[in-house]
């Protein structure tokens, strides 16, 4: 769509240049004295120069930062994912200590029944659901969701991932994945005149993407009966064996 608009714009500009400019040029040139022209050129330069200090006073904390420890964070995430697939599940406490693993939501529900069934709504993403029994019967179900490190280039966008929605009704905990999420980052590159001397040449193909996985951790009272229903392959009971 943008390409279409650009093409249309180019076409319109060419039409204007070819037909309009030669007709008005003579009149325009007599109207615009050198004083007006040089004043306008000076004004144009002045405005551009005035914008320079504005750029340097803009607050940068609202912009997305590059992560310098990307390799380490991605390695930690990949180790964790590998452990999860090998049924080596860390406790939630260990999980929260891992670098690059981001907790994106946390809920506490009062258990409204003596049993719990989990309903996972259709999802295309990679999601692991773990259930851990607490040592006590406190009547509360704690649900937390985590996202492993997700990168595009050096940009860590894990914190921007929307968590799933959780609801508990009549002993059924429903997990509804977020809708299709779209993240569109803006990367400013230096001009080729600068890159030529700074040995920087950021090509778009250098921006590799690392999609992570979602982890849902459910902590239930000691005596709650768990019904995995049809999701036996997606839900794992936690028996923490991995020390991180």
């Amino acid at each position: 769509m943008n390409a279409m608009i650009s093409l249309l714009l180019i076409f319109l500009i060419v039409i204007v240049i070819v037909f309009f400019i030669p007709v008005v040029r003579a009149k325009l040139f007599t109207l615009l004295s050198w004083k007006i022209t040089l004043t306008l050129a000076g004004l144009y330069l002045g405005i551009l120069m005035m914008i320079v200090p504005i750029l340097y006073i803009l607050p940068e904390n609202c912009l997305i930062k590059n992560n310098e420890t990307k390799d380490q964070v991605v390695a930690t995430s990949q180790n964790l994912i590998s452990d999860l697939y090998n049924k080596r599940v860390p406790s939630e406490r260990d999980l929260s200590k891992l670098e690059g693993i981001y907790k994106n939501s946390s809920h506490t529900f009062n258990a409204d029944s003596n049993h719990l069934s989990v309903n996972i709504q259709a999802s295309t993403g990679s999601r692991h659901v773990f259930i851990e029994r607490k040592a006590v019967d406190d009547g509360q179900i704690g649900v937390s969701s985590y996202a492993t490190a997700q990168y595009i280039g050096d940009v860590n966008f894990t914190k921007l991932i929307s968590p799933p929605t959780f609801t508990l009704q009549n002993g059924t905990l429903s997990l509804k994945p977020p809708g299709h999420q779209i993240l569109n980052f803006k990367q400013l590159n230096a001009d080729f005149t600068i890159n030529q001397f700074s040995n920087r040449n950021y090509a778009i193909h250098e921006l590799s993407t690392n999609f992570g996985e979602q982890i849902v951790y459910i902590r239930v009272p000691k005596s709650l009966v768990i019904d995995k229903g049809q999701h036996t392959d997606q839900i794992q009971m936690v028996d923490p064996v991995v020390q991180f």
Partner: peptide
């Protein structure tokens, strides 16, 4: 302002794209 290059990735649930801008 339309960007000079564009790349995107998709994993079904999430689409991530990067628009690159430059005054070149």
């Amino acid at each position: 302002l339309n960007g000079i290059s564009y790349m995107s990735s998709n994993n079904g649930e999430l689409s991530v794209s990067v628009n690159t801008y430059s005054a070149s």
